[in-house]
């Protein structure tokens, strides 16, 4: 019998084990081919789908590549001014303390123009979740240097590489906010391999579930590639990310609540 088993026999609705979650709309993602943003969007939506909190979740996306998230995420979304997503999330969470509120921000947004909002929201210990996509570059505007750009890494505004003497060192904002007493759970993940994706999904789920405890802010950094900005193919950029980004931004939990 198995000799006659064709692909058509396998592809039946009852044999489906994985497909895109319904909480991602059918709009084709506008991200570049191979960009980690798409995976991160899907992970957040999968977690919300599995927790069954679609109608109780409010997402906030500010400016950057993350700006179009409201086109893809089939939940209530608010568009914030550049860098101000944690401030908007603070307001939403204080008005609706029982809703799940998350922000979805990039590094040019969260670590540059929005540094003050980020640090103060973390310091106040707002019960929100911040999903931070770090690709070390301003992807949407054409690959300019970001605060998280690595030393000697080339970008369109530092064509000879980032000179730390003049331009300063990469800002490790995740380690920075882990120092603050207001944060409850701080972690750094990636989405470039299946194993990393599975771990990142668990971290995002924990970060959103933490909102029920009302113990403080949960912060998930996702180190991602920007193959267009880095001028590489997607697989080359993932390899480059492993070799260069991970030593500077090591994977793993940075602050874990002591009771779990």
């Amino acid at each position: 019998m198995q000799d006659t088993l064709t692909t058509k026999d396998i592809i039946k609705p009852e044999n489906l084990v994985y497909s895109k979650t319904k909480l991602l709309t059918d709009t084709p993602l506008s991200y570049c081919p191979g960009c980690g943003h798409g995976t991160a969007n899907r992970l957040v939506m999968e977690v919300i789908d599995e927790m069954g909190i679609q109608s109780q979740t409010i997402g906030i996306a500010p400016v950057g590549c993350s700006v179009l998230a409201y086109n893809f995420m089939n939940i209530d979304m608010i568009q914030a001014a550049h860098g101000r997503a944690p401030a908007v999330a603070t307001a939403v969470k204080r008005v609706f303390p029982d809703k799940y509120v998350f922000t979805y921000q990039g590094d040019g947004d969260l670590a540059a123009i929005g540094t003050s909002e980020t640090i103060h929201a973390c310091n106040r210990g707002e019960n929100i979740t911040i999903v931070f996509i770090n690709n070390g570059i301003y992807g949407m505007t054409g690959g300019q240097m970001a605060p998280t750009t690595l030393p000697n890494m080339k970008a369109s505004t530092c064509p000879y590489g980032r000179d730390v003497e003049i331009m300063g060192h990469p800002l490790k904002i995740t380690e920075l906010v882990a120092q603050l007493p207001g944060t409850y759970y701080v972690t750094r993940q990636a989405v470039h391999t299946p194993a990393a994706v599975r771990k990142a999904k668990k971290a995002i789920r924990k970060a959103i579930e933490n909102q029920k405890l009302k113990k403080g802010l949960s912060f998930v950094e996702i180190v991602s590639n920007c193959n267009s900005g880095w001028k590489m193919t997607p697989n080359d950029s993932n390899k480059w990310m492993e070799e260069n980004m991970f030593p500077e931004y090591p994977m793993g939990d940075i602050k874990v609540p002591s009771e779990i």
Partner: peptide
Amino acid sequence: TGCTNCAIVCPDGVISVYKIKVDA
């Protein structure tokens, strides 16, 4: 083998995976 690795790593979520157990 229907391990879903391709589908969970796909940035655009375009892959659906089907799996069946066959007795050999």
